[in-house]
């Protein structure tokens, strides 16, 4: 049992097509750390986050979360680990045909029996907490709206609330602001940062933008071609380092890829 909240050793992920997304990543995360993972698109940031809660199966290496070996967990253990790890996605990943409140309450599913969760038998306390979370991000009037009636920034705040509803010990945020305009981005990043600080939640957030990473993070990790090439406090990340991480893809460093909705996504 290690003293870290999350300890990753020699994590490697090979996709079946033969591409190596991650090779030999070692990473220790202490509780309450706010870590920004930066790197160009395709560097393996998203795969790294998804290996931690095994939405993507790691090829080799070990992952230990709060004393549990995630990589060796069976289905039941994995669900318990996942219930303690919140996740925020680039495309919000809300269930569009359900209400905002129901989407937030999904964060409680991991703590309920299968049947109770199926039939949405959330406790009064869970509902009150979910409403309080929505109020905190300024969505108390949107609670009963369908999720697809919201704007992108609002949807992402719902995504943040869903992750917080889990009362997690760790939040994984995969490009949470990559599809948002600068103003919504600031609101969302503030909401993640403030809540994590207040509740002592550790956070790993993937970001394109070096300036955003420097503004919020207590520690920055740079990933390039599946390898960790930087690990240190934001002050230590010089322009020289940043240039190295983004070598050949410099345009992604500060640019906001606004409106980057993939064509194949349909919101029915």
């Amino acid at each position: 049992m290690s003293s870290f909240l999350l300890e990753i050793k020699g994590l490697t992920k090979k996709y079946s097509a033969g591409t190596i997304a991650l090779s030999g990543i070692d990473l220790q995360v202490k509780s309450k750390e706010f870590i920004a993972v930066i790197g160009p698109s395709g560097a393996g940031k998203s795969t790294l986050l998804r290996c931690i809660n095994r939405l993507v199966e790691p090829s080799s290496g070990s992952i230990e979360f709060a004393g549990d070996r995630v990589d060796q967990a069976n289905a039941r253990e994995l669900r318990r680990v996942r219930s303690q790890i919140g996740m925020i996605f680039q495309h919000y990943n809300l269930v569009n045909r359900l209400s905002v409140l129901e989407n937030v309450l999904h964060g409680r599913l991991g703590y309920m029996s299968s049947i109770a969760g199926m039939f949405s038998r959330y406790s009064e306390e869970d509902k009150k907490k979910a409403i309080a979370l929505l109020r905190k991000v300024g969505l108390e009037n949107e609670m009963y709206k369908r999720a697809d009636e919201l704007s992108g920034g609002q949807k992402q705040r719902v995504g943040v609330c869903r992750a917080l509803a889990q009362q997690p010990r760790l939040i994984l945020a995969d490009e949470p602001i990559a599809s948002l305009d600068p103003k919504s981005s600031a609101v969302v990043m503030d909401a993640i940062h403030r809540n994590c600080a207040e509740q002592g939640i550790a956070c790993l957030v993937n970001l394109h933008q070096v300036d955003v990473a420097k503004r919020y993070a207590s520690r920055i990790i740079g990933i390039k071609n599946g390898k960790m090439v930087f690990d240190g406090p934001p002050e230590a990340l010089t322009d020289h380092h940043a240039a190295l991480i983004y070598e050949g893809k410099e345009s992604q460093m500060y640019q906001q890829p606004v409106g980057e909705e993939p064509q194949d996504r349909r919101y029915a």
């Binding site: 669900r79 303690q84 996740m87 990943n93 599913l109 309920m112």
Partner: peptide, 13 residues
């Protein structure tokens, strides 16, 4: 579906 899975939901949930 991926997001709900990530909360630790069971198959039926």
């Amino acid at each position: 579906v991926e997001a709900v899975e990530a909360t630790g939901a069971t198959y039926l949930q």
